Amino acid sequence: MESKEGIDALFLHATEGILVTNAEGLITRINPSAEKLFGYSPGELNGVKIEALVPSRFTHKHENNRANYVHHPHARAMGLGMELFGLKKDGSEFPVEISLSPYKTVEGTFVIAFIVDITLRKEAERNLRNYSEDLERQVKNRTLVLEEAIKELERTQKELDASLAKEKELNEMKSRFVSMASHEFRTPLTTMMSSLSLVSRYNERNDPENHAKHIRKIEKSIVNLTDILNDFLSVSKLEEGKVHNMPEEINLRQFLRDIDSEMQGMLGEKQHIDQYYSGEEEVLLDAKLLRNILFNLISNAIKFSPEESAIELHALVSEQAIAIWVKDHGIGISEEDQQHLFERFFRGGNATHIQGTGLGLNIVARYAELMDGNVTIESTQNKGTTVKLVIPR
């Protein structure tokens, strides 16, 4: 290989493209592999400027770089960190990798360029990059699908938890209803049975005073039973979404007078209702819902107030709101119990001996909500309670 023939064989039969340029950038020698690589016939590139093999957009830059390289020649890879392209005779481009090695002779400075077509490598890199990007997209899509599945599972879990909680609440309601009903129904029914038996005897003895007394007891027991049934009927309708707010034009002052008249039969001995009214009389309200609210509040005030006490019914109508409140001077509610008053079946610790379902205030609050209003309570134990309903106009 040290002979000229050996060196010529290495140059001519190398699979890499090899060409030699002089200081002016003219190709002085090129091997068959390089000629084939660029699509030229044997000898066609001899004496041609090297820029003929460079795409036109890089020609000016290549000339400057070549001039600089001639002044500071050293063996190196060409275009470090850059993508290099060769220009074929037919005008097509292809990616290349080039190494430069300078040498000097008596004829001047020359540069040997070793050129490798890296089209297949670039395609492989591009395919690998595309595969990687595709894989990343698939992973991202799968992750999104998984996240959606997890969210759906979480939603389902929340729905199941809510359903279980609802079912548990309903079961507790059923148990409490059975327990409460067995007690609350038994008392008035027992009273009625006893009074009916005594009514017959007092009638036979011609004792009108005791006869009337037990008739009143029977009437009161019937009212109590009706109240219990009404409470449960109201809860059932609210749960089923059958109760709606349907406002109508009413005379509120007259409406409250009518409520007063209807409640007279429930008043205890020497109890009375005092009314206080201020503001406009014609308002837009759901009369049925308001009637149920006031019946509940006034009947509570009657039940929890002593004989010979006043039940106050106030109404204040302004441009902004309608405020109605019921005030009594009865047993009141402890601070501890006040935070639970709107819970179903809750009864104050000082009211267990008084008949009731523990549903009234819960129903009142829900009716008020349907009317876009709210209910507040102020109470002091043994001094009385004020329940206030405020409905925006």
Score class of each variant (00 low, 15 high):
M1T: 12
M1Q: 09
E2F: 08
K4T: 07
L12W: 06
L12S: 04
E16A: 01
E16W: 00
V20E: 07
T21D: 07
E24H: 03
G25T: 04
G25D: 02
T28Y: 00
I30M: 02
I30E: 00
N31V: 09
E35V: 00
K36Y: 05
F38T: 00
Y40I: 05
Y40V: 04
G43Y: 02
G43N: 06
L45H: 00
L45W: 00
V48F: 00
K49D: 13
E51L: 02
L53Q: 01
L53S: 01
V54G: 04
S56C: 02
S56K: 10
K61G: 11
H62F: 15
N64M: 11
H71T: 07
H71Q: 14
H71R: 11
H74M: 09
A77C: 07
G81P: 06
G81L: 10
E83W: 03
G86C: 01
K89S: 06
K89G: 03
D90V: 07
D90S: 10
V96R: 05
I98G: 04
K104C: 03
T109E: 09
T109K: 12
T109L: 10
I112F: 03
V116A: 13
I118P: 07
R121T: 12
E125G: 11
R126P: 09
L128M: 14
N130E: 15
E133H: 12
E136R: 15
K140I: 14
N141L: 14
I150F: 06
E159M: 15
L160W: 10
A162E: 15
E167A: 14
K168I: 07
L170Q: 13
N171L: 15
M173E: 14
S175Y: 13
V178F: 14
S182P: 00
R186G: 02
R186F: 14
R186D: 08
M192G: 06
L198E: 11
N203A: 15
N206F: 11
P208I: 12
E209V: 15
K213Q: 13
I215Q: 11
I215C: 12
R216E: 14
I222P: 08
L225F: 00
L225Q: 05
N230V: 07
K237P: 09
L238E: 09
L238D: 09
E239C: 12
G241F: 05
V243I: 15
V243W: 09
E249C: 05
I250P: 09
N251L: 08
E262G: 08
M263P: 00
M263L: 09
G268S: 07
E269P: 09
K270R: 06
Q271R: 02
I273G: 03
D274N: 14
E281A: 11
L284D: 12
A287V: 04
K288H: 12
K288N: 14
N292T: 06
L294R: 03
L294S: 04
N296D: 09
I298K: 01
S299A: 12
I302L: 03
I302G: 01
I302W: 02
S305W: 01
S305H: 02
P306A: 06
E319Q: 12
K327P: 02
G330A: 03
G332P: 11
E336M: 07
Q339F: 04
H340Q: 11
L341C: 03
F345H: 10
F346C: 05
R347S: 11
G356K: 00
G360L: 01
G360D: 06
A365V: 01
Y367M: 05
N374Q: 12
T376D: 10
I377V: 15
E378I: 08
S379K: 04
S379P: 10
S379D: 03
N382E: 13
K383T: 04
L389F: 10
P392W: 08
